[in-house]
Amino acid sequence: MKRFEGILIKLAIIQFVLLFIAQFLMNQEEIQPYISKVVQYEGVNKLTITEWLETFKQ
């Protein structure tokens, strides 16, 4: 049972690290247009940030 618990703890730590990396990448403005599908679906990937925000407000 201890081995199973150890594996679960390691998986939880790996999941947390990957979540942290993904959240960090989503907050980077230079990388966001390449990884965010919302930008691609909305068709605003070539707009400035103010035009982009105006599109989402509508």
Rank of each mutant, 00 (worst) to 15 (best):
M1K: 14
M1I: 09
K2V: 06
R3M: 11
R3Q: 12
R3H: 09
R3F: 14
F4E: 13
F4P: 03
G6I: 05
I7L: 06
I7T: 12
I7K: 12
I7G: 07
K10Y: 11
K10H: 05
L11S: 07
L11D: 00
L11Q: 12
A12Q: 04
A12P: 00
I13N: 05
I14E: 11
Q15V: 00
Q15N: 06
F16I: 00
F16Y: 00
V17L: 07
L19C: 05
L19E: 12
F20N: 02
F20D: 03
F20L: 07
I21H: 02
I21R: 03
I21F: 04
A22D: 01
A22I: 09
A22V: 05
Q23I: 08
F24N: 04
F24I: 01
L25W: 03
M26P: 06
Q28H: 08
Q28I: 07
E30K: 06
E30C: 03
I31H: 04
Q32R: 06
P33M: 08
Y34E: 11
Y34Q: 15
Y34P: 11
I35R: 04
I35E: 05
S36K: 09
V38W: 12
V39I: 13
V39C: 14
Q40N: 05
Q40S: 04
Q40H: 10
E42P: 04
E42Q: 13
V44F: 05
V44R: 11
V44I: 05
V44K: 02
N45H: 08
N45P: 00
K46A: 10
K46E: 14
T48S: 15
T48A: 03
I49C: 11
I49V: 13
E51T: 01
W52K: 12
W52R: 13
W52I: 08
L53P: 00
L53R: 13
L53I: 11
E54Y: 10
E54T: 00
F56V: 02
F56Y: 14
F56S: 04
F56G: 03
K57P: 00
